[in-house]
């Protein structure tokens, strides 16, 4: 197997609006790929296309050497893809552990209920919300809900994990913890694509990065190359603060 995931010339239209324009990349196993870009650049749309929420209008998605362009989300889950959502989607009236058991039961491994429970407990320990196991998911705060999303995804024992802004809305220390968790996940051998706005964090943790702007891929490379890429800085100029930060980082 050469690459875990191949995205080949993917475009997505919503009516007349082009959300993705000819996106192409390959993702080798075991890497963390950072996906950045200004708001509305099409990052989440790309996740949705890979994940099977809706099919690409043009192009192909290949996962583990299978063409999954038309696959449904639940088929992707069984194949070994898991994701978190930018806007968290806890199963509110279920307990935290039940949420995670759902991930374990219906994901790649398809555990039985009995086998899923210890898996869920272990994952909850790993993401650090084991003490909340028996609470209803609705009672968690935002940071805990993000960890819950992650635990659900991990419980499926996926090959590829899509993280959609898991750092957004977290404070500094929570960000540091979460970044550590992401690294640990990678060290378990799980390949990761993460969408992120918290620039230092994502640059820190990514092996490689892709920058989207208006649905098109404007840069690709390791974090240093991205930092120094004039097109990236230009894309972020709409957000002067961020651009300035990027420049500073580049000079250091």
């Amino acid at each position: 197997m050469t690459s875990l995931l191949q995205v080949k010339g993917v475009s997505k239209f919503f009516g007349g609006l082009q959300a993705l324009n000819d996106v192409t990349f390959e993702l080798p196993e075991g890497q963390i790929l950072g996906l950045i870009g200004p708001n509305g650049a099409g990052k989440t749309t790309l996740f949705n296309v890979i994940n099977g929420v809706y099919p690409a209008t043009e192009g192909q998605v290949i996962f583990k050497d299978q063409d999954v362009t038309e696959a449904k989300t639940y088929e992707m889950a069984k194949l070994g893809l898991a994701r978190t959502h930018q806007i968290v989607k806890p199963l509110n009236e279920l307990t935290v552990i039940e949420n995670v058991v759902v991930g374990a039961c219906f994901g790649r491994q398809g555990y039985s209920l009995r086998k899923a429970t210890p898996v869920a407990e272990e994952v909850l320990n790993f993401v650090g919300i084991a003490d909340r196991s028996d609470q209803l998911a609705s009672s968690l705060n935002v940071a805990q809900k993000k960890r819950l999303e992650m635990a659900r995804a991990l419980a499926a024992q996926p090959h590829l994990l899509l993280l959609d802004e898991v750092l957004a809305g977290l404070n500094q220390s929570e960000i540091a913890e979460m970044v550590e968790t992401v690294r640990k996940i990678r060290d378990k051998g799980i390949t990761i694509i993460m969408i992120e706005h918290v620039m230092e964090a994502v640059m820190n943790v990514s092996d490689r990065m892709i920058v989207l702007n208006f649905g098109a891929q404007i840069a690709e490379g390791n974090p240093d190359e991205i930092r120094n890429n004039p097109r990236v800085i230009e894309a972020y100029l709409g957000d002067p603060k961020l651009a300035q930060k990027l420049m500073q980082k580049a000079q250091e």
Binding site: K72, T73, Y74, A77, H85, K89, V102, R108, G110, A156
Partner: peptide, 8 residues
């Protein structure tokens, strides 16, 4: 939707 993403 979330259930389907988790594989249900």
């Amino acid at each position: 939707d979330a259930a389907e993403v988790m594989g249900v």
